[in-house]
């Protein structure tokens, strides 16, 4: 190990003071005396000093806008006008009397719940089947999860193309199967838009669930299944009494985490339908964005954001509890 150390940074065993390495190259002995105590004082605080730049950045780029947002929610700030005035709770009043806000909440819950449930169900079936097949687990896991890292616009547009009313392959397949008589504008019809976007989200998320659940399955001791088999348990009993209890924590963490992401998801909905047709897919993030960005009504958007934040604080509190993020090692 010693060979890794630069001699300049090693304590001279005869000297009482360690030479700080803060300045990079060590200064010449005569000129460094006066600031050595300062450097040593700083060096003892290395850890906190290392954290400061990042924290400052988060405060500036994330926390400040959020605070600014809360402030805005009490003003009539609008991107089209340079000035703004204090309006008290008027924005909240407008939001809470807007029927679109409440239907956006309902749609967000439907979107979140059905997406996560679908992802979990398909992921669970896939994990169990992959475990059974045994062969090719590595390449399959890898191949299926890679699209997770693709830009959301690629994923959204590949689906938009498939669901296109004029050239879409989905219409072709469904017509061949006799499920529909004529082409359907999946993303342009009120009744089919939300199911179509949810289907896309399930498609996006289930491989992730599958890989995570497969990892969970592999932590269940084989002996549990063997003794169940000796006791004459059938598959359903094994599933009920061994597999599901064994996966309980994994499933809990996955559901909470995925729910937060899906709840927050703006890209998929915005890039496929833009919230339409006639608000049929307008979830809370899209609703907030339409007000703030499309209508430039920042004050009212801020009020929506604060309301959204309230819902999220509850979810995050659960999240911190479930994952116990502060547990050391």
């Amino acid at each position: 190990m010693t060979s890794r150390l630069d001699s300049a940074e090693r304590i001279d065993s005869r000297s009482e003071e360690p030479a700080p390495a803060l300045a990079g190259a060590p200064p010449s002995p005569g000129s460094r005396r006066w600031y050595r105590p300062i450097l040593r004082w700083l060096d003892r605080r290395t850890h906190v000093l290392l954290v400061i730049p990042g924290v400052a950045l988060l405060l500036g780029i994330v926390a400040y806008p959020v605070g600014f947002n809360v402030w805005n929610s009490f003003t009539d700030r609008n991107l089209s006008f340079p000035t703004s005035a204090w309006v008290g709770l008027a924005n909240y009043e407008r939001v809470l009397t807007d029927a679109a806000f409440f239907s956006a909440i309902t749609r967000t819950l439907v979107w979140t719940f059905t997406s996560v449930a679908g992802q979990l169900l398909l992921g669970f079936i896939g994990a169990i089947a992959l475990q059974a097949v045994r062969r090719g687990q590595g390449p399959l896991r890898l191949g299926l999860i890679i699209p997770w890292a693709f830009p959301s616009i690629v994923l959204a547009y590949s689906w938009k193309f498939m669901l296109d009313p004029i050239v879409g392959v989905v219409n072709d397949v469904f017509m061949r199967l006799g499920l529909i008589d004529q082409p359907v504008a999946w993303l342009g019809t009120e009744s089919t838009a939300m199911p179509a976007v949810v289907a896309m989200n399930i498609w996006f998320g289930f491989p992730f669930m599958m890989v995570a659940l497969l990892a969970g399955l592999q932590t269940i001791p084989v002996e549990h299944y063997e003794s169940a088999r000796v006791d004459g348990a059938n598959f359903w009993q094994e599933l009920r009494h061994i597999t599901l209890p064994g996966l309980r924590h994994v499933i809990g963490a996955l559901v909470v985490l995925r729910s937060i992401w899906v709840f927050n998801n703006f890209d998929f909905v915005y890039l496929t339908t833009g919230g339409g047709p006639i608000r049929a897919t307008e979830t809370l993030p899209v609703y907030a964005f339409q007000i703030g960005w499309t209508n430039y009504d920042i004050g009212r958007m801020a009020a929506v954001s604060v309301a959204m934040l309230g819902v999220l604080v509850v979810i995050v509190a659960v999240y911190l509890k479930v994952l116990r993020v502060d547990k050391e090692d």
Partner: peptide, 28 residues
């Protein structure tokens, strides 16, 4: 590090990670 507030900072970093982009995009 063992400095005071370390736990608070690491928690805040995680909260920032799951924090919805939409809530600070426009004010940002």
């Amino acid at each position: 590090g063992g400095f005071p507030g370390r736990l608070f900072v690491s928690r805040s970093v995680l909260v920032a990670y799951v924090f919805p982009t939409i809530l600070y995009a426009v004010p940002l």
